[in-house]
Simulated scan of single mutants.
Amino acid sequence: MRGENKRSVIVGIFVFIGIAILVAGVLTLGGQQKKFVQAIQLKAVFDDIGGLQPGNNIWFSGVKIGTVKKINFYGDSQVEVEMNVEESVQDFIRKDSKATISSDGLIGNKIIVIYGGTTMAPAVEDGDRLEAVMPLDTDGMMETLQVNNENLVEITNDLKKLTSQLAAGEGIVGAVLTDSVLADNFKSILANLNQASINSNKMLTDLNSFTSKMNQEGNLFNDLATDTTMATDLKATVESFKSSAANTEELTAKLNEISAKLDDPNTSMGMLLNDPEFAQLLKSTLNNTDSATYNLNRGLEALEYTWPFRKGFKRKAQADDKEN
């Protein structure tokens, strides 16, 4: 009888311990699931929840504030998520806050993160619907990373091929790296370019000095650029040149007209200049005139010795002697 009582006591103790453990587990799970706290219900509609399940946590500013209560299909192809949120944080969540889906760690369970909101908007109320923001698509990110990895492998292969060609002296760059003569020529080109740059700088300095001298007062170029009186005189001089050019052109036209008349054999001057027969006749006439003059001179000389005029010439000769 004593053994049976002892056994009953031991069984009762183990049953009590089991019940205590069960109650503690229920309380713990209930506390984690926020089952025994005052809560409000918020909603959000997503295009894709990415594996979110009822019971997943809800975070706000890094603090767990509730759990996902229910997931329902909404509209044509959207999903509505009902969230139980602690009533104690109601005043901190604004109506313009946003909800998005994230992960608890790198590969952890899905969670809903509530963020944003401004103090200008009122606090949320039970049954409000928050604006849903679609999270980054991890599958798309992985695909993009895969493509980037493939591109990186191709770039690495091309870079390896390029460096091997450079090491072998292929191409212009490879030749410059391996050929000492070409390298010396390249250095010479750089030296010439450097000298050309120095000469250009010197030329620019001289040009600046020249322009500064031109800008000094009293310089002709400065006077031309700034003196309005000289500009007026210069305009008058140009106009005078234009008038002279017009007169010269008119004179040239008249000279051309005169030259045309001189070339015309029908005019007297044209006949004198262009008619060979008239020139020959004129030459013959001049020769005859010269011959007649010569004969006249000889006749006058002979007249001196004729007796009617001999006394007169003697008197003239005596008068000339007296004057001498």
Score class of each variant (00 low, 15 high):
Asn84Cys: 06
Thr28Met: 09
Leu29Gly: 10
Asp48Gly: 05
Asn109Phe: 04
Lys242His: 10
Val68Met: 07
Phe313Pro: 07
Thr226Asp: 00
Leu159Lys: 15
Ala236Lys: 12
Gly169Ser: 05
Leu255Cys: 06
Thr248Leu: 14
Val15Gln: 09
Lys6Pro: 09
Lys161Trp: 11
Gly75Lys: 07
Asn149Glu: 11
Ala225Arg: 04
Glu4Met: 08
Thr232Met: 03
Pro135Asn: 07
Gly218Tyr: 01
Gln33Glu: 01
Ala253Pro: 05
Lys213Ala: 12
Val15Met: 08
Val124Tyr: 07
Ser197Asn: 13
Ala236Asn: 07
Phe278Trp: 09
Thr228Glu: 11
Ser212Cys: 08
Lys161Met: 14
Ile189Phe: 05
Ile114Leu: 00
Ala123Gln: 01
Thr211Leu: 15
Leu234Glu: 02
Asn84Leu: 09
Leu106Gln: 14
Pro276Arg: 04
Ala39Thr: 04
Leu159Ser: 15
Ile101Thr: 06
Gln41Lys: 04
Ile19Cys: 12
Val11Pro: 05
Phe186Cys: 08
Met141Lys: 00
Asn222Trp: 08
Glu217Arg: 10
Asp184Ser: 15
Gln165Pro: 00
Asp104Ala: 11
Phe92Pro: 00
Phe46Asp: 02
Asp275Lys: 08
Asn201Glu: 14
Ile112Gly: 06
Leu152Phe: 13
Lys283Tyr: 03
Ile21Asn: 08
Val147Ser: 12
Glu257Asp: 13
Ser102Pro: 01
Val238Ala: 11
Arg129Thr: 08
Thr205Pro: 04
Ala245His: 09
Gly169Asn: 05
Gln146Pro: 06
Leu159Gln: 14
Val26Trp: 15
Leu220Thr: 13
Val153Ile: 11
Lys213Gly: 10
Gln165Asn: 12
Gly140Arg: 11
Asp206Cys: 05
Ala319Arg: 13
Ala246Glu: 12
Lys235His: 09
Ile258His: 09
Val181Asp: 00
Met142Ile: 15
Asn56Leu: 02
Phe14Gly: 09
Asn199Asp: 10
Gln78Gly: 03
Lys261Ala: 15
Ser8Thr: 03
Asn222Phe: 11
Asn324Gly: 14
Gly25Asn: 14
Ile189Lys: 10
Arg315Thr: 10
Asp184Tyr: 12
Asp263Glu: 14
Val176Ser: 09
Ile13Arg: 08
Thr226Tyr: 01
Thr28Ile: 13
Asp128Gln: 01
Ser284Val: 11
Leu207Pro: 03
Ala123Pro: 01
Gly62Ser: 05
Asn288Ser: 12
Glu87Ala: 01
Arg298Trp: 04
Lys314Pro: 08
Asp128Arg: 02
Gly50Glu: 13
Ala191Arg: 04
Asn5Glu: 07
Thr163Arg: 13
Asp96Gly: 00
Ala246Asp: 14
Leu282Val: 03
Thr100Gln: 03
Gly3Pro: 05
Met83Arg: 01
Glu323Pro: 03
Asp91Pro: 06
Lys187Thr: 02
Arg2Trp: 00
Ile65Gly: 05
Ala292Asn: 13
Leu42Pro: 01
Thr252Ile: 11
Ala39Asn: 02
Leu106Ser: 12
Arg298Phe: 07
Ala260Met: 06
